[in-house]
Write a protein that binds this DNA or RNA. Structure first.
Lengths: 346, 346
DNA sequence: TTGTACGCGTTATCAG
DNA sequence: CTGATAACGCGTACAA
């Protein structure tokens, strides 16, 4: 029989995947033995093991995931759930770093990552996927206070949140930075460099991180006895940042400093300034947040609060894997440090 | 018994997922009947169906995916495979559009999307995932000629490629644009607007789209009898584009036009020009490719070749779903039109 | 219309 | 060290 032709070809022209049974037959052993070899059990005589391995190789056998998962009650997959619009998610490099970090941790494990960019009210389909045993756990990032469905996934799976959440549970974990302090540090920088009319472009206030950064800004202002300038929601998007900056410039009184709660928004806001002939940092000082590469692309290199996004992703995955492997001493909250990165904008 | 407390709680504090059996018991019917109701079979008497639905509701029953997939031989999931570095993938908004398009098509289906950002030589883990029945089909984007592993996934799954591939098969499909023609149109625009020393910043020549765009550039030049300027690889990245532009500027003779094979590279290249006091389009004209929002963020609004990325994603998913549902009249190649979008850079 | 019984491909517990 | 055999949870002929 010529290679590539198989009498058992399906209508679709694809040969059915070989099963344990088939490998066993070819190697002249039982299914159990094949299973042992495949799973690296030591109690198999070398010659037999070798024969099995050859059969596996020849047939291109790959264990059926559904069958394995049915009996083991594990899928060896975890989901990254982002209740965001696709373009939102991809538009902010912060998420790329998070994913890269998760990926890095997963590489050394047997888990595979399923990225689920869900809308805020995911269809039953998504929920059934998450609740139907397709994944062993989930990492949730960028969640909003209005995301009710998270309650349900938290009830059925171990979940690690990126950013504090109002949703708690026995198997709920959080990796975050101190957003209040980070924002305060940013704002103090503005104050120390001489700013006295300080505005802020905030993220959507349906997100805890936005709320915290706003609080930090206010706190630093209060500490220094500096009056709070305008607060505008920039929606954590490029355009939102640009619009917010226009709004601030149209304020009744000019500002001389702006704390912008994400570099992406800042990279939308800075060009607005430059276009109007306003110099950064001479006329208006800017401090961003995140330290993604967007900080370097706005026309002025941004002074910003560095968030260890990649490490955050790594830890989220690490914690989840720990929990899934039954570790009991996993901390429920991990707060990573931020750091002020001084560049040209403030 | 108080709600929320269940004697069957696992050590992890999580109640085991209810099974068909359990629902059946509660509704006082057989498993088969519950299955019928869950799967929307019509042959169930209304009162019984109602009782079952209530039991499902009360127990929060969700079908076990592994079991269902084991018997049906389908996972209702498809994979989007991108053999790219995570930051590469997220850095280019082109992919965001593709994903958005796929997502849009999937929304109206029962399929769920698994995003797999694989390295070029994915671990056995990834291959086992793809080959182990975890997904019913795959969409592959951004593949390089060196990606040997694709051969294997093409052998075991229906695959739709985004961009022409050297890998063919009975169940292999392609959605693409005419890159040669698109690039030629771009280059003709440069020629028509008076450029005579025309360079190009290409993508990695391990990708078919890069090769095609380069060919189109050359073709347009030949047609017009214009000598070809320097060709520099910009690697389809922002920094690559910037470096490539520097290299071009250091060429022995100055250029007056550059066709840049992606907007992302162009948005890295344009600032290099502006920084050196070179005006766009007065001194050097630029035409990009893709028409992602990067075209609007480079300092000059880019004239570019629009690629219907979102529609491409949509069609890739549509074709795959068609194949999976047994359709036999699915075209193996779908070429979507490009369009020159004239803005300020040329 | 409803229930019974079998099989999907694995892993794991037993005997041998 | 190896081979039967019993689950795992579900869909579905087939029988009632």
């Amino acid at each position: 029989m010529p290679a590539g032709e198989d009498p058992l070809m399906t209508a679709a022209g694809r040969t059915p995947a070989p099963t344990l049974e088939l490998v066993a037959a070819r190697a002249g052993v039982s299914r159990a033995t094949v299973s042992r070899v495949v799973n690296g059990s030591t109690s198999v005589s070398p010659p037999i093991a070798e024969a099995v391995r050859r059969a596996v190789q020849e047939l291109g056998y790959v264990p059926n995931r559904a069958a394995r998962s049915l009996v083991s009650q594990q899928s060896q997959a975890i989901a990254l759930v982002a209740p965001e619009d696709v373009n939102r998610f991809f538009g902010d490099l912060f998420f790329a770093e998070i994913v890269a970090g998760i990926d890095a941790r997963l590489e050394a494990s047997d888990y595979v990552l399923n990225l689920m960019i869900a809308n805020h009210d995911p269809s039953g389909k998504t929920m059934r996927y998450l609740g139907g045993g397709a994944v062993d756990g989930a990492i949730v990032v960028s969640h909003h206070t209005s995301d009710r469905f998270l309650r349900r996934i938290t009830d059925s799976l171990p979940v690690v949140y990126g950013g504090r959440s109002s949703i708690a549970g026995a198997d709920t974990y959080v990796v975050d930075v101190d957003n209040v302090e980070g924002a305060a540090v940013a704002t103090r920088r503005l104050i120390e460099t001489g700013c006295r009319r300080i505005a802020t472009i905030a993220g959507p206030l349906t997100m805890q991180s936005s709320i915290d950064r706003l609080a930090g800004w206010r706190q630093a202002l209060d500490e220094a006895g500096v009056a709070a300038g305008p607060v505008v929601d920039g929606d954590f998007t490029l355009h939102g940042g640009a619009n917010a900056m226009r709004e601030i410039l149209d304020w009744r009184e000019p500002v001389d400093g702006v704390f912008i709660a994400s570099d992406l928004m800042a990279s939308g806001a800075v060009p607005v300034l430059l276009d109007r002939g306003i110099r950064v940092p001479e006329d208006v000082r800017i401090v961003g947040f995140d330290d993604t590469s967007a900080a370097l692309r706005s026309g002025v290199e941004l002074t910003t609060v560095r968030q260890p996004s990649r490490a955050m992703g790594w830890h989220m995955a690490d914690i989840l894997i720990g929990v899934l492997s039954g570790a009991t001493d996993v901390p429920h909250e991990l707060i990573l440090p931020t750091e002020l990165v001084v560049r040209d904008s403030a």
